[in-house]
């Protein structure tokens, strides 16, 4: 039986049950990274809050999925452990909004997106599609059967 697998803030979820749908609700400036292996029909999603774990002084308290620098490698490693090969993985990114007319200085959404791009670029991983920025809230779904990633909010719903 398929189910909704919910990803809370600062968490990741993976599944190899092709009937599952992985979902995260209401991304603001947070960013969701979705990775999917169409060969094995398995994948995962992480709901990241901030770019850099170095702000956490007590290293033992670091929640890895909260930060781009610690969360992204963990998500990939977990999918590798489930048997996926890096060449097969499709990567999509969504979120990273900003409050209207907020200054660059506080633009956490943009910083999150920049951190993800930099990390993927360094590791020669391409983003196949994305829906980032703006001032909207996003709910993101990954359908394991098809690999489709669907974004929705109160006004619209579309695939990326």
């Amino acid at each position: 039986m398929g189910k909704y697998v919910v990803v809370s803030i600062s968490e990741m979820q993976l599944s190899d049950n092709r009937q599952d749908t992985i979902i995260t609700y209401s991304l603001g400036s947070c960013i969701a990274l979705v990775i999917y292996d169409p060969v094995k029909k398995q994948g995962g999603m992480i709901h990241l809050m901030l770019p850099d774990s170095s702000i956490e002084k007590d290293k033992s308290k670091i929640v890895p999925c909260k930060f781009v620098d610690t969360g992204v490698p963990l998500l990939f490693r977990t999918l590798f452990k489930m048997g996926s090969h890096r060449n097969n993985i499709v990567v999509k990114v969504a979120g990273g909004s900003s409050v209207m007319d907020s200054t660059k200085y506080f633009n956490i959404g943009e910083r999150n997106y920049a951190a993800i791009r930099k990390m993927l670029w360094r590791n020669n991983i391409m983003i196949s599609s994305e829906d980032v920025g703006g001032s909207k809230s996003r709910t993101v779904k990954l359908f394991l059967e098809s690999g489709k990633v669907v974004i929705s909010n109160s006004q619209e719903e579309y695939e990326i």
Binding site: S29, S98, S135, K136, S137, T139
Partner: peptide
């Protein structure tokens, strides 16, 4: 609260920042 996604979604981020 809005930054961490704890806002009502229909008005969500449609506000000016308080920078």
């Amino acid at each position: 609260s809005i930054m961490i996604g704890k806002s009502s979604q229909k008005d969500g981020l449609a506000y000016s920042g308080c920078a």
